[in-house]
Design a protein around this nucleic acid. Structure first.
Lengths: 203, 203, 203, 203
DNA sequence: CATGAATGAGGATTCATTCAT
DNA sequence: GATGAATGAATCCTCATTCAT
């Protein structure tokens, strides 16, 4: 993190500026990709001169890194929501339709794919992704454990690993599935997800 | 086809050259990405001058397209293998470990991610992906139907959609999962996949 | 206009830069031709980096177009001068020597030839040339009419066409003549032109 | 000349090949200009491999030179025709319409303009043009002299220079005029030319 | 803080020319 | 003779980055 931030005299304004750039970057990155988006494009979207961006970020790579860091937490957000429920697994199953619909929107699935592709070549991005994944799966693990205890199911390590890895793999597949088959039978997929969730986590 | 190929008089040599370029491109693309790889890099890897490549491909985009076309059929190959078995679903379940291990190799999962990211911005690539997907899921559908008939399970359209979409989504998630958690508990994931397969396709 | 100009915030400086580029282009174009002159050559002559030129012009074609637009008005300037005289045709005849001498200078006749050659292949340039010609011959027509009325000669359309087209053809021939015979008998040509002018316009 | 030809063992076939290339070049040059036409384009038009052309010409420049040499004689051809007539000047005046019509065809006027532009930058081409001009004007001079003697008009050097230079300048202007005003009043121009011819050569 | 003019390295692409076959 | 595969230099253009103002 220290490598992607710069010390500035008016911290709160600087943070706002950084956010402004990142918001603009979101627009440009999802439209043109990390490498297709130019600093000029970003600066225009940010309503700020290209040169000025360099007062807040060390360069384009730093913007990408900061952007990824900010966008990588999405799964965690879902976890926090689920954590509210008494039976988080049941909540997941109940939310399945909503989740699928959300993932079929191009403006939802484009950025994860872009980020993944970048991560597969850029170790810094990969690290950010993996760090976020640790946090996500740790949170998820707790929720699954709670649910399984509620259902009086075993909660040994391997079983929890099984639930966590399999389920997250599933969610990770949705953006790719949407890309390959934009008009898929949504109802069928929702039904299939529910079956899988139940079988994996409550079976 | 006509847009990504060029007619040359010595067909077999020309085809060899094209293959040579595509092989070099594979190396460079997976190392640097479609946009990060320069024609100079590719030409060096192909052992041929940059200019000469243009005798075989209309430009970098044509190389990417041809490369994607050649790499997009992998799922189909898996389908063909499965089609050999009397009970293809059981064969999938039996092969689960092998499949997972394969997908955990970086040199396996990098290109699908790169291709997906490109497809999310490049309509031509998206079309290639979607066309390949039609063929894959049609093949897969047939296999699932055969297996379900064998097991005397219903084979209505929605049910087959459910099996096909959910299972493919699952497989699509593996590369992303591998990227996010390279050292995941492989045995647990295999076990989870088997549970999911059985529940979805044979439940 | 909009296609050959770019809006920049400091208008007067931008205009100066554009002029600087066009001046450099004049040098390079007349030395190497439109296609022989490279952007690197132009940028060096303009004392500015090649990349920077693209902040003022959309590309080399835009420079050529702007350059042609700026150079195509020369005939109009002559017309404006002639318009000052009470008897413009007599003024032309009086100026004949000066006109011929001017057209014999290589740095006068090179660019019109280059422009003409370009126009014969490039529709945009052809259009610019033809638009300028409309204006030139309209102005010239008025002058001839005034002179003929002064001399109490008929001013019907065909006669005015005759004067305008024939005389301009004559002037257009001078650069080519100079190119084919650089050391021609200048005095004889001047005398010939005067005879032709009188016969055509005042006959 | 010796620099644009190559000694080959079967002279007559070689000459045919050279002619074949030059004919192809005519097509390509008038379509794309000297610099816009590629060797590939020419070789295709000539029905011969690009490499093979180098057996007959030292390079593209040599083709251009040879092409210009072959195309520069057009005025001379007109002279030869005129020489047939007892009163060549009267023949010119009679032919005026035909001459104008011919010069208004784009495929007539394009090449002279291209050649002139090239000559203004390439000394070799300029020399070819000027050499051809010497021959043209010498022939023309003889014809004018004959006609003037027929009409019992003075034939001193300056007067003949006047006739020759002024008239040729006129003809040189026609292609440029056609380019600037493709739909000009042809009849008026013909009439104007006749007036000018009579005034200059028979006045 | 903020601008945007300016740079220069790097990228894709074209093309005259060569040479092994 | 004849081919066309192969080269590599040159060209136009883009873009991240810097810096004077």
């Amino acid at each position: 993190m220290s490598s992607t931030e710069k010390r500035l005299s008016a911290p709160e304004k600087a943070a706002a500026r950084r956010a402004q750039v990142l918001a603009a970057a979101a627009e440009c990155f999802s439209r043109s990709g990390f490498h297709g988006a130019s600093m000029a494009e970003i600066s225009k979207a940010a309503g700020m001169s290209a040169g000025h961006i360099y007062n807040y970020f060390d360069g384009k790579d730093a913007i990408i890194e900061a952007f990824v860091a900010a966008n990588v937490e999405r799964v965690s957000a879902i976890m926090r929501d689920l954590a509210q429920h008494k039976d988080p697994v049941q909540a997941m199953i109940d939310n399945a339709e909503e989740t699928v619909v959300e993932h079929l929107q191009p403006n939802f699935y484009v950025m994860p794919l872009e980020i993944a592709a970048e991560a597969s070549r850029n170790p810094k991005i990969a690290q950010a992704l993996q760090a976020a994944d640790i946090s996500s799966r740790t949170q998820f693990r707790v929720l699954v454990q709670r649910a399984r205890e509620l259902h009086q199911l075993p909660v040994d390590d391997d079983t929890l690993d099984l639930c966590v890895e399999t389920m997250i793999a599933f969610f990770h597949g949705l953006p790719m599935r949407a890309l390959h088959h934009p008009n898929l039978n949504q109802a069928a997929l929702v039904k299939g997800m529910r079956i899988a969730m139940r079988a994996i986590m409550l079976g």
